[in-house]
Design a binder for these strands. Structure first.
Length: 483
DNA sequence: CCTGGAGTTGTCCTA
DNA sequence: TTAGGACAACTCCAG
């Protein structure tokens, strides 16, 4: 080891916090008056750490480009390293003499194990900070010091714990290291898809990076917060925040968004503000569940479902993934996902319910597909929402709650704008027939150039029959004894 | 320890 | 056309 001197650098380890503003670990690093060495590690080898899906990798690539540019503007370059994080950091300390490291906490079991190992073996000071969540998930406890399993009491307790701290601004300058360690070139990581390159449609929909996140935030606060409580449910106009991937990669701080929610410079009813704040806290609740139950993506939260007879049905699974089920609202959603790496939340519930209840396919198949295709694929929110839809989760939907894909389309895509956008083969079919094209008169179909079974699939299951079959199967298993 | 109100997002049938 | 109740009972959690 080189001798520890005044000029030894502090390592700022970026992970899921790819931003400069309101980044507590970065502010800490800046405050030490030492050279700052910002790094990002691509760790695909540490056990129990879930490898990113393809859409997330695309996002990560561009987010790292953006972070790297932003850091350069502060006078320090971002160093990219690859391998098991413990080994990488060991080697980095050997090379640079760094005796100090800091990061913002993460919450997957495998990731926490890695961080704990580094903290206990690091020769020097390793400091962690809270930046990803508004309250540490393990600190929200019931009156009897237990974790919560139901959202509303969690929300009440969350509010009773007092408001989250105010966001802090980015450091003005950082001191660079005199000599830099050797790092990787981002392109060598091959995070971008090729053969085929399906990313242009993602690039059209999104601007990864901190600047893009703030653009989205400003647009949301100016336009969509006002009527958020009602308008967020309609996938056609899509008045959601669309901030989920930016939050996933920490390009914007949840502290910033929490205080935005109650900022009176933006006009909105109290109801809209509260619903938006509650959405932020759903994310917290998902992490709370993940903390209590680290295998949230692998096993049923409710063990009664461990014996449930899920059906293996590769053809149906494939039709669902490709958006070829014959139910336009399902197909629109699945195609939006595949094309843009994102799906409106209302539609996520509808397609999730369809896979699990209508097709009786294991929710884990859906969770995996979402994980691979979503740019906002989140280790906590994704499995938590799938388990909720499937009825296997904490605070699960009751088993008899089966979304009707026809009725949902009528109710939430009344003008057909969502289906028209993502199912172009039905673009000439009048809105009233979009929820269930097989019920349209033959002449109307012909006039719209639709031939069911040729230009657009016939429904792969009958709603009424599938619903009855699901109720039967679920009814039988609800009395199963948890192991 | 007991009590009792409450629980994200729906559907379908009946009156 | 629309409003209301059944669907099931259970667990959670505060007081």
């Amino acid at each position: 080891m080189p001798p520890i001197t005044q000029s030894t650098p502090v390592i700022m380890w970026f992970r899921q916090d790819l931003r400069l503003a309101d980044n507590p670990a970065l502010n800490h690093a800046a405050s030490l008056g030492k050279p700052v060495l910002p790094i990002f590690i691509l760790d695909e080898v540490s056990p129990e750490c879930r490898a990113m899906g393809a859409a997330q990798k695309w996002w990560l690539h561009h987010s790292l480009v953006s972070l790297s540019d932003d850091l350069k503007r502060l006078g320090v370059p971002l160093t990219l390293l690859r391998g098991a994080a413990t080994d990488v950091i060991d080697a980095l300390c050997q090379e640079t003499g760094a005796d100090s490291i800091c990061w913002n906490r993460r919450y997957g079991a495998g990731e926490q194990a890695v961080d704990a190992t580094i903290k206990s073996t690091f020769r020097g000071t390793a400091k962690s900070f809270g930046g990803h969540l508004l309250h540490e998930p393990s600190l929200v406890r019931t009156g009897t010091d237990m974790p919560y399993r139901v959202y509303t009491p969690f929300w009440k307790k969350f509010c009773a714990m007092g408001p989250p701290r105010q966001p802090v601004s980015a450091p003005k300058t950082l001191t660079p290291c005199v000599t830099l360690p050797t790092g990787d070139a981002l392109d060598d990581w091959k995070l971008l898809p090729r053969k085929p390159d399906w990313s242009p449609s993602l690039a059209q929909a999104w601007t990864p990076g901190e600047a893009g996140a703030h653009q989205r935030r400003n647009a949301f606060l100016a336009d969509n917060l006002r009527a958020y409580d009602t308008a967020r449910d309609l996938p056609g106009p899509d008045r959601t925040s669309r901030l989920s991937p930016h939050l996933r990669f920490g390009e914007i701080s949840p502290y910033q968004l929490w205080h935005d929610a109650f900022d009176t410079r933006h006009t909105a009813e109290g109801k809209a503000r509260e619903i938006w704040a509650k959405e932020l806290v759903w994310r917290e609740f998902a992490y709370h569940l993940l903390q209590e139950y680290p295998h949230l993506d692998e096993s049923n939260f409710n063990g009664k479902f461990d014996t449930f007879p899920w059906q293996s049905n590769p053809q149906a699974l494939s039709a669902w993934q490709k958006g070829q089920t014959g139910y336009p609202i399902i197909d629109a959603g699945m195609r939006q996902l595949y094309q843009t790496g994102w799906m409106h939340n209302r539609v996520r519930m509808i397609v999730g319910s369809f896979l699990v209840k209508h097709l009786l396919i294991d929710w884990r198949e859906g969770e995996k597909w979402f994980w691979d295709t979503l740019v906002d694929g989140d280790p906590a929110s994704n499995p938590a929402q799938w388990q909720w839809v499937a009825g296997t989760g904490a605070d699960a939907a009751p088993y008899f709650r089966i979304f009707n894909p026809i009725m949902q389309a009528q109710k939430f895509d009344t003008d057909g704008s969502y289906i028209h956008k993502y199912v172009p083969e039905l673009k000439n079919l009048p809105a009233q027939h979009l929820p269930a094209p097989w019920e349209a008169p033959e002449s109307v179909l012909r006039q719209a150039g639709v031939e069911l079974g040729k230009t657009y699939p016939k429904p792969i299951v009958d709603h009424k029959q599938a619903r009855a079959r699901a109720l039967e199967a679920l009814n039988q298993s609800k009395d199963a004894i948890a192991p």
